Simulated scan of single mutants.
Amino acid sequence: MRVLVLNSGSSTIKFGLFELPGETRLAHGVIERIGQEDACLRYHDAGGERTEALPAPDHAAGFATLLERLAACGPPDAIGHRVAHGGTRFGAPARITRGVLEAIREMGDLAPLHNPANLAGIEAAMAAAPGVPQAAIFDTAFHQTLPEHAWRYAVPENWHARYGVRRYGFHGTSIRYVSGVASRVLERPPDETSLVVLHLGNGASATAVQGGRSVDTSMGLSTLEGLVMGTRCGDLDPAVPGYVAAQSGLDSAEIDRLLHEESGLLALCGASDMREIEGRAGAGDERAELALEVFAHRARRHVGALAATLGRCDALVFTGGIGEHQAGMRARICTGLEVFGLALDGAKNAAPGPLPAAVHAAESRVAALVIATDEELEIARQANACLADEA
């Protein structure tokens, strides 16, 4: 069974081809700069890694050419698509039908930067491979287990009833994957583990996972709430946008763009790449040092709140590009968490070795784990299970 996984952005299609049930990754890569003359394919398979020019005026043309390149591995038996927002309708993967397509389209207002692009990739794949069964795997689905007191906003009831204003949560596919790995590392059944998972990358979130289920998370209606991110502000006094609009004359669309694209680490120090920021801080750049402290403080605050929600925390799990690779940021976040019984081992944290890795000290009552996420593999698993169940 070959499952092709697609994650379509506005100008990209990331892909991975897996053979199941052995979970062998046959090929992976990305089509970049779709719609531009210099579109290209970065591709890795058994023959190695290469980059080539690729005619891709749109998603459909790019995907059709991708299928030609993948032919050597054999045609896909199923296709799984990452979809950012499934609202309350989708708490599990869904076989793609006309009704599912329309639902994804309708939820574009909830994820305007993601769902329309995800939809473009789905439509391209359906046009190029009409006989191949396809499934949508939703980032929000894992968080449909949140209790109502965790997802409710204290806003007028008709905002929720008419407009769907509530907390949804994101990064669910990643969190589901690393939670499973964490339970194996801890040698405990998933239904007996309590975890706080920090998915730290350009987008960042914190989630409390109890018994394999999400019970609280930092992101809300959109991907803007919660931790400080590369270009997103994270938690913000709700009065700020209105105040800035009144003072500046900016309209709501421009303020929303600024909060998504020109805030976060970028606003604090002029850079959004954590490696660059850490380098500048090490060279004495005070703004870079402030950015690191703000990022760590916000993450630490959410970890503390989620640990209190759980009542018992077996492990703090770091994943995502920053969580997996930035030992300095892991140390900053954990400074102060001794009150919860967590103590890092400095040497293990600095050089954790092959992942997954435990980086806590021997006396620590809470484990600190570094786990490499694999959203593509998790999507392949879920798509395979979804389509097999409906076969």
Rank of each mutant, 00 (worst) to 15 (best):
L6N: 00
K14Y: 05
F15H: 03
L17P: 12
L20N: 09
G22E: 15
E23T: 07
G29W: 00
R33M: 05
R33G: 01
E37N: 05
A39N: 04
C40W: 05
C40M: 08
E49T: 12
P57K: 04
H59V: 07
G62I: 10
F63E: 11
F63H: 12
R69N: 01
A72C: 13
A78R: 15
A84K: 05
G91V: 09
I96S: 04
R98A: 15
E102C: 03
E102N: 10
E102H: 12
I104H: 01
E106R: 15
M107E: 10
M107W: 04
P112W: 04
A120W: 01
A120N: 02
A127G: 08
A129D: 01
P133G: 05
A136W: 07
I137Y: 02
T140I: 10
F142Q: 06
T145W: 11
P147W: 07
P147F: 13
P147V: 10
A150G: 06
R162T: 14
R167S: 09
G169W: 07
G172R: 02
S174F: 11
R176D: 09
Y177H: 15
Y177E: 01
V178Y: 00
V178G: 03
V181A: 11
R184S: 14
P189D: 09
P189Q: 12
E192N: 07
V196A: 10
G201T: 09
Q210K: 14
S214C: 13
G220M: 13
T231C: 08
C233N: 08
P238L: 06
V240W: 08
P241C: 00
L250P: 09
D251N: 14
D251P: 04
S252H: 13
A253E: 15
E261M: 08
E261G: 13
G264E: 14
L265I: 06
L266E: 14
S272K: 14
M274F: 00
E278V: 03
G279A: 14
A283T: 10
D285S: 13
E286M: 09
A291C: 03
L292D: 12
A296Y: 05
R298P: 12
H302W: 15
V303W: 09
G304C: 00
A305N: 06
A305G: 03
A307K: 05
A307V: 13
G311C: 06
G311V: 08
D314C: 07
E324T: 03
H325Y: 07
R332F: 11
C334Y: 09
G336I: 11
L337P: 02
G341T: 03
D345I: 12
A350N: 05
A362H: 12
A367D: 13
A368W: 06
V370Q: 01
A372C: 02
D374L: 11
D374I: 09
E376H: 02
L377Y: 07
A383W: 04
C386A: 15
D389Y: 02
E390F: 08
